[in-house]
Design a protein around this nucleic acid. Structure first.
Lengths: 157, 157
DNA sequence: TATTGTTATACTCTATAACTATA
DNA sequence: TATAGTTATAGAGTATAACAATA
């Protein structure tokens, strides 16, 4: 007969839900915590984390194409259009014609965009430093390493 | 002057993007890998991870109220209505009146629901076992522990 | 007054498919 | 034929606000 009482395989968390032993569930819950703090740190008018990521990669890789950027972000190119529209409207980058292939629009960060990005990076790093203040350096290293390992599993699939 | 070349604070990943050193970015990317594999494991007609979580907590906590369930899942009670509708339509649970408080609809898992849940749990655990086959037991323990620690930080905020 | 479940509504993020202009 | 960017559209997931019934 099926027990209705909470079961667990994790002896360190007595009576925990089955969900507590699942990486997927814990990843989602943890992500939401960090995401919410990210939003709070950047404020009401702040960039979303996805637009921040797009700006970061553009500043780090000037003249990147939208297709290449979408690939780096792991999203479809169609999803990038509105983000690039937004960043261009803010004068953070320019769509720029590429000599030799008139299909391509390279993304070039502006001076304003680079300055804004430098400030944003500082703000975001401060938000994570504050949020993870109870984590040792070794714990943060370990966490990042394990998360990257999950991504590498996904790359093979 | 601001450098346009990729910067990093992580000496183990030379020339990595600033994004690689951010927990939030890595959490999201890792979550998407696991989420995609979850969907594939449960198939085209399978439950979504959120509905699976709702069913799991209902089976583990029979007679739970919708408000309590929403709180456990970390979502608004309005968001639960469609999920409970779906699970009730599948005959996995029943909305049941509670004597003494006619506002409340307790959620009671059916025999069908409990059996389906037992199978689902097995499928989901198999999907994670396969996905994390390259992870040592210690790595999985460490990962779960660190993710729970992030959640506990969120609880305080 | 407060709470439970509900509805209506809207917003974010994302994907798919089809279009255009090039190549 | 294939690719880059774009548009239109739709779906999942979630939140907010308001409501009726009940406490």
């Amino acid at each position: 007969m099926i027990q209705s009482k909470p079961q667990t395989e994790d002896p360190e968390v007595p009576n925990a839900s089955n969900l507590e032993s699942l990486v997927g569930y814990n990843l989602k819950r943890a992500y939401l915590v960090v995401q919410e703090d990210f939003r709070a740190a950047l404020g009401e008018e702040g960039l979303s984390s996805r637009v921040f990521a797009a700006l970061t990669l553009t500043v780090e890789n000037p003249n990147i194409t939208q297709s290449a950027l979408a690939k780096m972000l792991g999203i479809e190119r169609s999803g990038l259009v509105a983000m690039v529209d937004f960043l261009e409207a803010k004068k953070y980058l320019k769509r720029t014609p590429v000599p030799g292939d008139r299909r391509v629009q390279a993304l070039v960060p502006t001076k304003i965009g680079k300055a804004a990005h430098a400030e944003l990076i500082a703000t975001v790093k401060a938000h994570e430093d504050a949020l993870f203040v109870e984590f040792t350096a070794e714990e943060k290293r370990s966490l990042l390493s394990l998360l990257r390992k999950i991504r590498s599993v996904g790359d093979k699939a």
